[in-house]
Design a protein around this nucleic acid. Structure first.
Lengths: 345, 345
DNA sequence: ATTAGCACTCGATTGTGATGAGTGCTAACA
DNA sequence: TGTTAGCACTCATCACAATCGAGTGCTAAT
């Protein structure tokens, strides 16, 4: 059987209606929805076909129909095909002073959740493969050094280490120069044994400190790469959708949103190389996270400056307003990009 | 009427039973609970009295009794009176490397939530009234300075600012010395016009930079004091308690846990000067947060080093295991203190 | 090919009675 | 005088039946 134009119209009508109400939709409703262009009986016939083809489902014999995962998939694919060019204007971007990336991300998640009425999720950037831009050692106490590490893209990490030996200001200055001249522009991976031994040699009596510093830098960056920061917001929005807010499911879903390690799957999934738009739509069972099998999840990759990438995600009911979410995500990514470019300037 | 010993015993029995089951408890249950020391009929009489006195409530005519807020209050006060001296050993503290305070706090909240099976909340330290320990300016780009601010207690803040003028390394060094020699040991409040104008004078051509730096420092500290960081964990634990997990309430409660500004009330409340233990117990309507009127909330202040204070909180059903929670909080506070002292060493 | 009409299905809602845990009260008892 | 046994009463809860109505599938007419 073929999916002719009328079937498509009806399918879309079913999906749109269901998105609004969350209730199974019957033939008469659709008939009215299309201005009685066809009678309910006709619609019934078509619906029967659509069900046979797997696009819609009947929860029980005498209920209306609801879209199946396949139905949603069809709908979404249609939207995705639509031209990408309408990058609408968006509200004034609210992160004038990008002081700390983290707080921006949090705000962003909140904004997104409020805007869409779904749960939002945003992952901090992945640090590995990032270049070192600058290292600064300072003494904060007699036996304590502060290490400030600045990565490409102005991501900053601090660590405080205890040092056994005393180092005077001049030595510290020299160490700083040594570190920066040797390490600038290298990625963490590129700091190999050769580089290290050369630095140690140059450091003379304070080779131990060099070791300490390098270990600490490596550790900070690695630790951060491992337990990736993921911020969520608007988790309670799911209570707005009865089909998700049954206690058992809601509890699981909310629990999952608290567990970063589970969310990682979503974030990583977006790396699909075939997908050049950077946008992924998971419908129902397609979602790699168990607790979200009754939801749809949309993720989008963002990129700030050179190679600093992260992921934004929206989690909502299967009947989420795909059009709106996709649009919002697209504009947001553009905005984010622009904001950062501006900051970089 | 007086609250004699028997009444107290029965009241406690009712509360303990109710904490276990979450169901209203009847006279026979209590009779068995006290090894039939009194018959159910006697218990009934006493319960009738207790109800009249307002310590317990009958949800409906032919149900058992449940503790009222007043009942809980009595119970908790009893526990609080018990001697404070049993600081039990606790599991190995898991924050060997206190790299970033923030991540420690998050872990702590998670630990606490897991341990108690209630929702946990922890506020980051309040920065104001904190002394400046160290300031470091570094150039990261031609027109960008990195300002690292270290406060007493080794709390670190970074900011990047754009500067119009070019500053060479030597000038930067001088500025650093200038900043540190003038500002060390001062609180934010103490940096007044006099200090500022003196610094500007000394800075000569780069007075503008001094201004910029000071603004930025002030802003960072203020911004952080305003939207105080509050981390929550184990929010979904509330689904373990049927009396809270009705959809309407659960949604509100979880929503509230996402709104830092509402949680502030809890955190601030613990500042009650009369309360020298630093521990606050809110039962039911006593809670300053609307959505938690069906819960009990316990907050405890912690202190790290000099004047860096924050608050830990537990949110659970009114029938929460007060004894356990109080004990856990007390030990935790001790541990936290010890861990930080050790770090400081 | 479309549509009107009708019998049918089945979840949701409402109503009813049985069940049982728990109470209050009274009278008997120590 | 305090305690207890006994009994009538209350009321949430559960299972079951009756009813309702939205929505269907099928057939026959257009």
């Amino acid at each position: 059987m073929e999916l002719d134009e009328r079937k498509v119209t009806i399918l879309k009508a079913i999906i749109r209606n269901y998105m609004d109400t969350g209730e199974p939709v019957g033939s008469r409703t659709i008939s009215k929805y299309v201005d009685n262009k066809w009678s309910s009986a006709t619609i019934r016939n078509e619906m029967s076909d659509l069900e046979e083809m797997g696009y819609i489902i009947q929860p029980h014999t005498s209920a209306g129909r609801i879209p199946s995962d396949k139905g949603y998939r069809f709908y979404v694919d249609q939207i995705l095909q639509e031209k990408n060019n309408e990058v609408s204007e968006m509200q004034e971007l609210m992160f004038r002073k990008v002081d700390r990336l983290e707080s921006v991300l949090k705000k962003l998640a909140k904004l997104l959740a409020n805007d869409t009425n779904y749960a939002a999720l945003i992952s901090g950037p992945k640090y590995h493969q990032n270049k070192l831009k600058f290292i600064q050692l300072s003494r904060v106490d007699r036996d304590k050094l502060l290490i400030v590490t600045v990565l490409e893209g102005n991501l900053i990490k601090n660590t405080i280490v205890n040092v056994a030996e005393e180092i005077d200001e001049e030595e510290l200055l020299n160490l700083n120069i040594l570190l920066n001249s040797n390490l600038n522009g290298l990625t963490v991976e590129e700091i190999n044994l050769e580089v290290i031994s050369r630095m140690k040699q140059q450091a003379g009596p304070h080779a131990g400190v060099v070791d300490l510093v390098l270990n600490q830098v490596a550790e900070v960056i690695r630790a951060d790469a491992e337990n990736l920061q993921i911020y969520t917001s608007g988790a309670t929005n799911i209570f707005k959708y009865p089909e998700l807010s049954d206690n058992q499911k809601a509890s699981e879903l909310l629990g999952t949103l608290e567990h970063t390690e589970l969310l990682q799957k979503l974030v990583n999934g977006a790396d699909d190389p075939e997908n050049n738009t950077g946008i992924q739509v998971y419908i129902g069972e397609e979602t790699p996270v168990q607790a979200m099998h009754d939801c749809s999840v949309i993720t989008a990759n963002y990129e700030l400056g050179e190679g600093i990438r992260g992921t934004i995600g929206i989690i909502g009911p299967k009947r989420m307003d795909y059009e709106k979410v996709l649009k919002t995500l697209r504009t947001l990514m553009t905005q984010l990009d622009a904001a950062f470019k501006k900051e970089e300037r």
